[in-house]
């Protein structure tokens, strides 16, 4: 029988992505100097704010921004980062939403969901909107069951 999807789930915090809970995930390589990546980091008990990092592009492959652990580090396209009561949203200067995160708090845990559309440096769709949530396009994501220990592109270059 085909169609069985499997992964891991945390008792503390998970991301709802592609219709499944995941404790953390990574698409692309944060260590690359220029390429697309999206890192939704694994949270340990005691942490209640999801850590999102990524280098995002528009549908033409032009770089929009680079975010490292919820902080806008590079912003060549004059994008806007705005915290919300439940997460944050990133929008283009035109106001068009790039990515929005929403974290729901339950008595004993948290679930973060996404909405928006993300493209890589070739303009290929990597994260798509599906109804009220988002799904990853392609099968190149890695699930994280521990906090990300790797480096980011800039750090790698400086190392």
């Amino acid at each position: 029988m085909e169609g069985i999807r499997s992964g891991a789930v945390s008792a503390h915090h998970n991301y709802m992505i592609s219709g499944m809970l995941r404790p953390g995930f990574l698409v692309g390589d944060p260590g690359s100097a220029k390429g697309f990546y999206l890192l939704a980091d694994f949270l340990l008990p005691g942490e209640n704010t999801p850590r999102i990092s990524g280098r995002f592009f528009d549908e033409r492959g032009d770089m929009l921004l680079e975010l490292t652990w919820n902080r806008l580090m590079l912003d060549p396209a004059d994008c806007l980062y705005r915290p919300t009561p439940y997460g944050f949203h990133l929008s283009k200067s035109s106001g068009e939403i790039i990515l929005e995160t929403t974290t729901r708090r339950f008595p004993n845990g948290y679930i973060t969901s996404f909405s928006g559309r993300l493209y890589d440096e070739k303009g290929v769709l990597k994260l798509d909107q599906e109804g009220s949530s988002a799904r990853l396009v392609g099968n190149d994501s890695i699930m994280l069951t521990a906090p990300y220990q790797g480096c980011f592109g800039k750090e790698k270059k400086n190392a």
């Binding site: 029988m1 891991a8 945390s10 008792a11 503390h12």
Partner: peptide, 13 residues
């Protein structure tokens, strides 16, 4: 309640 716990998640068809 163990907040550090992880489990396998399966979505059967």
């Amino acid at each position: 309640h163990d907040p550090f716990a992880l489990a396998e998640l399966i979505h059967p068809p």
